[in-house]
Every structure is written in C-alpha cells, then in structure tokens.
Amino acid sequence: MAFYTSHREKKIWTWVLLILIGIFSTIIIDRPFRGVASQNVAALLFLIGMALVAATVITQGWKRKPSNIELWVVIGIIAVYVMVFTRMTIRSERSHLIEYGVLAIFIFEALKERKKQKPEFKHIAIKAIVLSVLVGFIDEGIQYLVPSRVFDQEDIVFDVLAAIMAVFSSLLISWARKKYETRKSDLNKFIVSNNNLELIYLEEKKHIKIDRSITTLEITKLLDLLWKESAGINFHDIIHPQLSDPGAYFFYSSKNCPDKRTWKLTLGNHGWSGGMYLIKTSTLAQQLNNLIKRSKISSIEFGDVTFFSSLTYKGEEKSEEMNRKLMEMHS
C-alpha cells in the first residue's frame, strides 16, 4: 500500500525532507561561521528568515485571492512574529523559530492533505507539532554527539514555541478563509451547514465531498445552488458503458441553460466524446445519488471546470434519449 494518499501529499513531504536536510546540515555548516557574522549580516538573515516564515504561512494557507478578514488575520500574525523576534537577542533562538516554524507548516500541510483523502485521520495539528518537536529532539541529540556542540534544553523550548506558533497561524488563516466562504454565498452556507457535505481541495481544485447518507432532496438542493452560481461540475461515472477506458467522464454546465431544471452535458473518455445534451436536474440528481450510494464517487469537482462547449448540441430528441438512458442506468 502506498504511503502517500495523493501527488500533492508526496510533493509536500518532499519539501519536508529538504527542510530537514537544511536543518541538520546547519549542525556542521554553522560551526565555521560562529562569531564571524556581523550585526548587519545577522540583521539581514533575520529579515530573510522573517520573510520565509511569512511566505510559508501565507502561501500554504491561501488557495486563492485573500479576503479582507484573511488580510487582517495575517497582519495580526506578522505583528506577533515581529514582537517575538525582536524580544529574542540570541541568534540561535531566532533561527530555531524560523527553521521549526517552516518545518511545522509543511508537516501540517502534508497531514491536512492526508486528512482530505482519509477523513478518519484525526488530530493533525497536534501531530504536526509533535513531529516537529521530535525533529528538534533528534537535532539536539545529534549535537550532543558532535564536538563543540551541546544538547540545549532551551532550544527544545523554542522548537515547541515555533511549531505551536506556525500551526496556530495556519489554523487562524484557515478559520478566516472558512469564515469568508460561509458569508460568501448561499452555496457555501449550505455546504458548511450540511453534515453530509464538505468543501475540500484535491490537486488544488475545489471539490464537494459528499457523504453516502445524503438524501436525493439534499442533492437536488445542492444542484439548484450550483446552477444559481453558474458553477460547472464534473465527475467520473464508472457505471456508464465502457467504450474505451472504464466508464465516462461527465461534464455539466449550467451556463446559458433555460432554467434550473436543465444542465448542459458533455461526456467522454480516452478516444471518444458523446456530443452535447440537455439533462434534467432530476436526472443528474439520480445519477449522483446512485454513484454516491454505491461508493463509486465520494466527491465532485465544481466551479470553473472543463466543459467542451465546442461539441455539437444533439437536439431535444437525443437529449430526451440520454435522460432516459441515465435514469435507467442509475435506477
């Protein structure tokens, strides 16, 4: 069984590995420069470190253009970091806050990605902090064995502080984003308020995770809200008869549809496409309900998704035939 749950998680853990190499390499690299660096160099390194922490927290916390509430949260986080940094007079204290802050953020992001793929994976914030502090213990343990270096308990304290501050900052930004999303639209309010739905990101694309206990009525309500926001959706229907690879990819769009009872559909798979049809919301709801209940899909991508608008519309008769086929397929 693969260790990684997604390509994104693998990519983040790769960054974690690179950060670990950087942290452990300072045990040796730092020695020749001790006592040499001037105050100007120290100040420059301090500013670079601050920028690195800020960039890490912000880029990992934001997936899109930030809202005003997110900006204020980030300003507050930066202010706290500045106050903490300026109160630290020893260079090693600042370096630990930078190194382990960045490390904790990337570990936290990797665990968040794992949780998206495996909802049963719990307590990721605590795990991220514990793993970061564990690295700190290993770091100090190695230093204990290296001549001219010592095991410093105070460094462990700063590692803990760095991990907590970084993870808490990421949680604050996520909270601000969720707060904004909740206010943003009826769709987001519906998703947040419904225990059977969850807004997630897969490969940095927006998905709605749907629990098997959802009702057809709730799916219909969700589709109505998606239609209202002109949001497209797509998913893979493994039940569709195989023409090349198993199943077919379905791409639905509500743009320029006459009313919310209809969706434009294009479908296809490797080597074939099925043209464009008008599909009833009730048909789409039945299709999704069947796929979800049978655990064939667990989420749908939504938003500005791929839609092959250049395909030829098949007309009312073919559309009615496609509606009947889908209803029979998913009855």
Rank of each mutant, 00 (worst) to 15 (best):
M1Y: 14
M1E: 15
F3N: 05
T5S: 13
T5P: 05
T5E: 10
H7T: 14
H7D: 12
E9I: 03
I12A: 00
W13N: 04
S25K: 06
P32D: 11
F33D: 10
A37Y: 07
S38P: 06
V41M: 12
F46W: 15
A51Y: 07
A51S: 11
I58L: 08
G61P: 00
K63L: 04
I75W: 06
Y81W: 13
Y81T: 02
Y81N: 06
Y81E: 01
V82S: 12
V84G: 08
F85N: 09
E93P: 00
H96L: 11
L103P: 05
I107C: 05
I107K: 04
F108M: 11
A110N: 06
K112L: 10
H123T: 07
V130R: 04
D139F: 05
V150W: 11
Q153T: 14
F158T: 00
A163F: 03
M165Y: 10
W175Q: 09
R177E: 04
K178L: 11
D186K: 14
I191P: 00
Y201I: 05
Y201P: 01
K206F: 03
I210L: 01
D211P: 01
D224Q: 13
L226G: 00
E229Y: 07
G232C: 03
H240C: 08
S253N: 06
R261P: 02
R261K: 15
G268I: 12
Y277A: 03
Y277I: 04
K280S: 11
S282W: 08
T283N: 05
Q286S: 05
Q287L: 12
L288N: 01
N289L: 06
K293H: 14
S295L: 14
E301H: 03
F302C: 03
F302I: 06
S309G: 08
S310Q: 13
G315E: 12
K325N: 11
E328G: 08
M329R: 15
H330D: 06
H330A: 10
